[in-house]
Design a protein around this nucleic acid. Sequence first.
DNA 1: GGCCTATAGGGGGAAAATCCCCTGGGGTTA
DNA 2: TAACCCCAGGGGATTTTCCCCCTATAGGCC
Lengths: 216, 216
Amino acid sequence: MKKKSIVIVDDHLLFAQSLESLITKLEEYEVLAILKNGKELTQYYMHKRKVPDLILLDVKMPVMDGIQTMQWLKENRPEQKVLALTMEDDEDTIIKMLRNGAKGYLLKDIHPENFEFAMKMVIEQGFYYSGKIENALRNSENVDDSGDFHERLTEKERGFLKHACSELTYRDIAEEMGLSPKTIENYREAVFKKLEVKTRVGLVIYCMKNKLIKID
Amino acid sequence: MKKKSIVIVDDHLLFAQSLESLITKLEEYEVLAILKNGKELTQYYMHKRKVPDLILLDVKMPVMDGIQTMQWLKENRPEQKVLALTMEDDEDTIIKMLRNGAKGYLLKDIHPENFEFAMKMVIEQGFYYSGKIENALRNSENVDDSGDFHERLTEKERGFLKHACSELTYRDIAEEMGLSPKTIENYREAVFKKLEVKTRVGLVIYCMKNKLIKID
DNA sequence: GGCCTATAGGGGGAAAATCCCCTGGGGTTA
DNA sequence: TAACCCCAGGGGATTTTCCCCCTATAGGCC
């Protein structure tokens, strides 16, 4: 039997190479390449390298993350089978990945036997659904999917957002941005409406939830 | 040459077992056990199992995390060599781990060759310092280490904190907690001082940074 | 007894945030 | 061309937040 080919896309080199060891041990699979992000995956395709039977795709990556990568694949390689693999058990992320064509979704704390089963399922049957995913999908059906509010923000509003997630007053922000406090006030009101928050604290929490702002 | 023995403590089973494959491939090492958290490690010791030459310890785990585990080890197995291994490149966490006796600290995105070198160093030389760690330590020397501010909060103040990370006004919070708005006001002021924040937004950001509040 | 802290409460006031309403200019597009 | 949106700004009012001050009880500690 011919070995199934796999490409791993994950910025955690140690994990990726460890995973390679594990997969190689399974005999039925071979790892064609380990790539650090979606960008490298697009380059992999451009060099007309062998198309893998399956891509193991991490979600949280620098440069080009899992969701961006799925969007690119949807456009350019819609037939590519992808198993998303991540630490995040954030439902929104799961849904987004599946919406963009991922055939299955695994958390990295999965038991290796299930992992093997999931790979097999996606390659042979075209999909793998775990209990968690079914939950996520069921929940998402009920939710009137209005998408990400923040995608409708203007550039200026996004700029305001960055400053709003701090201890600056609106007056400070106005100075920082070289604008009138009243203009900032307009941004605030617009952003509040678009993101459906009622207070600045609500705004900050929205940003955190949706990882619009990096905290470190 | 006798193989060096290793225990892996990591709740991400897939990663842990993958890592085992990688380590086993190196020939010089053997993995004695894979444990899911610090609690399991303490149980491992209690059953008088073979003491490993090295523990690979994840930081973020449920039940008993890396820092708690290091504190336990410091008390009960001060000689145990530990290499901390994590996704988090949060400097505070690194410093805390090292302060509690970890002999080295690796991010999971390390190159496997460096990983092997780090294991060798910790087992044979007793320590491993990467550039990042030296930075972290140097920075921490300058910082007047006052530890985690939030550990000095009272129960009531912590209760207030939970409600403060929301769109509730202080009046709402007072109602929610069945107290006078003025009492809430006292909590606010005390918490602001203890956490060294100046605004409610600053408070929320502090909570997020230190994961005092779970957002989902 | 003094001293400290946690708890619960209050007065008063200044500064911010929030919420309405409004006027323009400039660009896009139906 | 009219409708619409983004941008920049403003008037005015109400809440909320924030920052001082203060009292009082109960418990622990020296």
